[in-house]
């Protein structure tokens, strides 16, 4: 029974993290939520008797994918709805 409870909690966490990652406007939090998805997915793979895939997901999904997204956010914008000044000028010129 505790196994079923554990499974249900995992499903709730992974779906909540996925929805949060899509809806959150602050991209840094969204990227960290994808890291949470990878953690739970790694446990799923282990329970489905796929230890090789679990190791790969743990190393790549949790550490490497998260860090390259964070580097990209550092080089672009952190806020999803950010409109830069440059473009305000561009649009005003057209009109």
């Amino acid at each position: 029974m505790s196994m079923i409870l554990f499974l249900i909690v995992m499903v709730i966490i992974i779906l909540a993290a996925a929805i949060y990652a899509i809806l959150q406007k602050d991209l840094l939090y969204a990227v960290l939520a994808t890291g949470v998805i990878s953690v739970i997915l790694s446990i799923f793979f282990y329970l489905l008797q796929a230890p090789d895939v679990a190791i790969t997901e743990a190393a790549i999904g949790i550490a490497l994918t998260t860090i390259i997204f964070i580097i990209t956010i550092r080089n672009t914008t952190r806020d999803e709805d950010e409109y830069t000044d440059n473009h305000v000028e561009k649009f005003s010129k057209k009109k």
């Binding site: 899509i22 991209l27 969204a30 998805i37 895939v53 990209t72 956010i73 672009t76």
Partner: peptide, 21 residues
């Protein structure tokens, strides 16, 4: 936002991997 689209692709990737296993 382009980074959001990349996050969406990454989540789709995870779902397909879980389906296969």
């Amino acid at each position: 936002h382009l980074v959001k689209i990349a996050i969406g692709l990454s989540i789709m990737d995870s779902g397909i991997n879980l389906l296969f296993v």
